[in-house]
Design a protein around this nucleic acid. Structure first.
Length: 665
DNA sequence: GCACTTTATGTTTTT
DNA sequence: CATAAAGTGC
């Protein structure tokens, strides 16, 4: 999109409209981010609103950071101090921290990630298999984000499974309380509960955040909508920007009904549609429109573009996933050569993270630089979780999940049976594991040989805790790593290469903590609390010239000159489970999001055979390909550009690479 | 009872 | 291929 030109008419209207609540229905690539950023600038410059009175809510930290940068650029040096641009969850943390007394939590509460919560649910559900626990966890999360309490869940639970789930839910909530811990859902749910119970606090925040802007509104869930509603208050000074065709988080409790509910809850709601697309060629938009026309529509809108027809969209059928990966990398190289493009102009998008593996292998073989976004977050890597568990335990000794992890990494003579005994004792006495380990009563239950390593561990933590109150975060961390000989343990545990990469991650984490500690003058305790919310993507350098690999979900909000969309097969996109549960529309929107990421060219591919475990499963093209309209697509055979023989094709790629190397010099 | 080695197993999407 | 449960030496 051309950021230099003036905003078009509806964009200008959306930026300037301040007479009441506003919903901007912004199609893909229609400049919604621009509306939000320029509106923030407008509020500050033209309306004289203090940055501290404005809050913009995004869905990812990355989007928040980008938006912050764009606003700073727009205001050209003028201070944005106090301006809130954050995710719903980060805002939730801020509210929780400030109002922690009113909530009955201690200020050192822990934030648990999905893995910790999984372990808790697993513990409470007894002997259930992994899939069941995941379903339980999902259902509990669904309830929480819909503002259903454990008691209410008991009331609405139907059937054996849901009754069990409601029971687990109640125990789960009590467990979190006991741990002085909150999960991701609580970051929204607790502020909502707080504001509903204490109008004075609600008013305080309403007064502080006098204008709200919400991005990706179609992906809000009930609790987020409720929080927005409470924050906006009777003045209802807000702008919500969304696109019902891009709602792809239904599985997480997001409900497009929140879009429909807006005109109902705010009768004076103004609706502005942005229908001109500044991103893609006509052909790409025609295919996207044709596809999405198969969905039941909430709001009518027609995207158009004046960027010309452009390259035809290609569809390629490949023998299997390997061949697909090879063909895509080949095509990408050839295309880049032909167009004299940069690697960073290309993105390869897919439904599930596992699909990146095959592609990665070929990219690495061919020495194509790439950046993998999504997937496992940096802070979820085992080595980082080990270390952050220590930090969490230092911050909050009640954090039993952190205790359990830290006490076993590295091994220190405290095994599963000692921990079982400790857990049982702590449960009876309503103590945290950490506190229980220090009690006389527990000492009488176990042998001295079992007790001493445990006591030593607790003393070590206590000693470090003292230091953490006085010394800078990075210093405490390096003392910690030293004391537990973490590097040596990694080397003993893993193979050399793995250990070194893990240690490098730990070092990177140290640097990060040191930087944060210096720049933002935050204490170890404050830093520890925010870790769970940060993803690795935030750290990645977006300036690097590399091909982007991303899931369709993680690609939302981004754009690329050339897009390769792989695995457009029945069973993958739409996903098998989703198809079975009649959730086709969301899968269709997911592809729609993928298609509309492309500015200039789009290349779809699928495989006829897919390896699943040991079995080879025959596949067919996704139904969505037909829905895009044959007249908008050009079908190609794998064989027309790819040589079936691996050696020969590798040779071809090498030749091409040599050619490219010569070209760039 | 603890720690380490082997073997089966299985993958939607994320704050 | 990377993680998790079961098996083996100490």
């Amino acid at each position: 999109m051309s950021a230099h030109s003036r905003p078009n008419l509806p964009q200008r209207e959306a930026i300037r409209y301040l007479d009441g609540p506003l919903l901007v229905l912004a199609g893909a690539g229609s400049g919604k981010t621009r509306v939000i950023t320029e509106k923030i600038a407008h509020l500050i410059e033209a309306c004289g609103l203090s940055p501290g009175n404005i809050a913009a809510i995004t869905f990812t930290n990355k989007a928040a950071r980008e938006m912050q940068e764009r606003v700073s650029r727009l205001l050209a040096g003028k201070s944005t101090r106090g301006l809130t641009i954050s995710t719903f969850h980060s805002l939730g943390v801020r509210i929780l921290r400030e109002e922690v007394d009113a909530l009955g939590y201690r200020p050192n509460f822990s934030i648990l990630d999905a893995t910790d919560c999984f372990a808790i649910v697993s513990e409470l559900a007894g002997s259930a298999d992994k899939a069941t626990i995941r379903r339980l966890q999902a259902l509990i999360s669904q309830w929480k984000s819909s503002l259903v309490s454990p008691d209410e869940a008991r009331g609405i639970a139907r059937g054996e499974y849901e009754v069990l789930a409601a029971e687990v839910f109640a125990n789960y909530a009590a467990t979190l309380r006991a741990y002085q811990a909150v999960d991701f859902d609580d970051l929204i749910v607790l502020p909502v509960a707080l504001f509903e119970k204490q109008p004075a606090l609600r008013d305080k925040w309403q007064n502080r955040l006098r204008y709200l802007l919400i991005d990706e509104y179609q992906d809000t869930n009930v609790s987020q909508y409720r929080l927005l509603h409470l924050l906006a208050g009777p003045r209802a000074a807000f702008t919500a920007v969304g696109d019902d065709d891009q709602a792809i988080y239904g599985w997480r409790g997001a409900d497009v009904a929140n879009l429909r509910g807006l005109p109902r809850d705010y009768p004076n709601l103004k609706i502005i549609k942005l229908e001109q697309n500044y991103r893609s060629t006509v052909r790409i938009l025609k295919a996207a429109n044709a596809l999405i026309a198969h969905n039941e529509k909430l709001f009518d809108k027609k995207l158009w573009s004046d960027l010309g027809h452009g390259e035809p969209i290609t569809v390629r059928c490949c023998a299997d996933q390997e061949k697909e990966a090879e063909a895509v990398v080949m095509k990408l190289q050839a295309h880049r050569f032909e167009h004299r493009g940069a690697f960073r102009d290309y993105a390869i998008l897919y439904r599930g993270n596992f699909q990146a593996r095959a592609i990665e292998r070929f990219l690495r073989d061919q020495r194509v630089p790439y950046l993998l976004s999504g997937g496992q977050s940096f802070f979820e890597k085992t080595e980082i979780k080990d270390i952050t568990s220590y930090l969490r335990l230092l911050t909050n000794p009640e954090d039993d999940p952190a205790f359990l992890r830290a006490v076993g990494a590295p091994r220190r003579g405290v095994g599963s049976s000692t921990l079982r005994a400790l857990g049982a004792y702590a449960g009876e006495r309503h103590r945290s594991l950490f506190a229980a380990a220090g009690e006389q009563g527990f000492a009488q239950r176990v042998q001295a040989g079992q007790l001493s390593p445990l006591r030593e561990f607790c003393e070590f933590i206590e000693c470090l805790r003292q230091r953490a109150c006085r010394e800078p975060a990075a210093q405490v961390l390096s003392a910690l790593l030293d004391a537990i000989s973490y590097e040596a343990w990694l080397l003993a545990q893993d193979e050399m290469r793995v250990a070194r990469s893990k240690w490098a991650n730990v070092r990177e984490f140290c640097d990060w903590l040191g930087r944060k500690g210096d720049e933002e003058r935050k204490t170890l305790f404050e830093l520890t609390q925010s870790i769970a919310l940060i993803g690795m993507i935030d750290q990645q350098d977006t300036e690097i010239d590399a091909v982007r690999l991303s899931t369709l979900h993680a690609a939302k909000g981004l754009e690329f000159r050339h897009v390769f969309l792989i695995g457009v097969e029945e069973g993958v996109l739409p996903h098998r489970e989703a198809a079975a549960e009649n959730r086709i529309e969301e899968e269709r929107r997911l592809l729609y999001v993928g298609i509309t990421r492309a500015q200039r060219s789009l290349h779809l591919s699928y495989a006829e055979k897919r390896k699943q475990g040991r079995e080879v499963i025959p596949c067919q093209a996704s139904r969505f390909i037909a829905e895009m309209g044959r007249e908008n697509l050009r079908f190609a055979n794998e064989n027309s550009t790819t040589v079936p023989d691996r050696a020969a094709s590798a040779e071809r790629l090498s030749a091409l690479r040599a050619m490219l190397a010569g070209q760039t010099r």
